[in-house]
Amino acid sequence: MELSPLSPPRLVSNQNENIWQTLRRELLTCTSFTWAVAFITPDMLPPFKLVMEDLRAQDVHGAIITGTYLAFNQPRVFAELLKIPNLKVRITAGPFHAKGYLFDHEDWQTAVIGSANFTRSALLANQEWCVKISSRQDAALTRQLASALAGLTAASQPLTPDWLQSYAASWQ
């Protein structure tokens, strides 16, 4: 069932439509996006890169804020993210375990917030719960999330080849 952009908040899980389908639909209809996700696995990058190529043709850009918490993210994940021209990646310091996805649309925003990292198991199979909220731009909750993301962006550093080289040398 297709919901209108400003439908009531709803629970998104992998029980019926998986979380990746929800995120993919938002990506394909957004004007930009910012995600904060602690963990990213290499097996989610091929479908993500396909979507990003489609978005590049539409001049849609996005950002991902992630980190090195528990050394979970493999250097090859960062190397693949660097290859996506319409994506900016920021690296946080310290313990970072957030999972929030914010999508800007023409005159509204959608947020998906919950337990799902950007991993194949989290987005397709695990028992994960996320809440999907859509609201007019500058509504209280999406404004708070946008502010939190802006704070994370300001407190993080850009993913660069030099940063990746240093991380790869020390990663275990």
Rank of each mutant, 00 (worst) to 15 (best):
L102K: 01
T153M: 12
E106T: 13
S170I: 12
S7F: 08
N86K: 02
A71R: 15
R90L: 09
F39G: 01
N117E: 03
Q165A: 15
A155K: 14
P161H: 01
E26V: 01
L152Q: 10
A140Q: 09
L50A: 15
Q144I: 10
F78H: 08
D138Q: 14
L145H: 01
D107F: 08
T68I: 14
E2M: 10
A36E: 03
S121L: 10
E106D: 12
P42I: 12
R25P: 00
P8F: 11
L149T: 05
V60K: 02
P5C: 01
T142E: 08
W171D: 01
T153F: 10
N16Y: 10
I84T: 14
I91P: 08
V112D: 01
N16Q: 13
D107N: 15
L55G: 06
A150P: 08
L145R: 03
F118C: 03
S7H: 14
L45V: 04
Q58M: 11
I40G: 03
D59R: 13
P85G: 08
W129Q: 11
P42E: 14
A57I: 12
L81D: 01
P95A: 14
A63G: 06
P5A: 01
L50E: 15
V89A: 00
D138I: 00
A98F: 07
H61F: 12
F72M: 02
M52C: 09
L102W: 06
A139D: 14
L102P: 01
I19F: 02
M44W: 09
S147H: 11
H61T: 07
L55I: 05
S7V: 07
S156V: 00
R10D: 04
M52Q: 09
I64D: 02
H97A: 01
W20N: 08
Q21H: 13
V89W: 03
V77K: 04
K132R: 14
T92M: 11
V77C: 09
T92E: 11
S135F: 05
Q127N: 14
T92N: 10
C130N: 15
N73G: 07
L87H: 02
V12F: 02
V77A: 10
G114T: 05
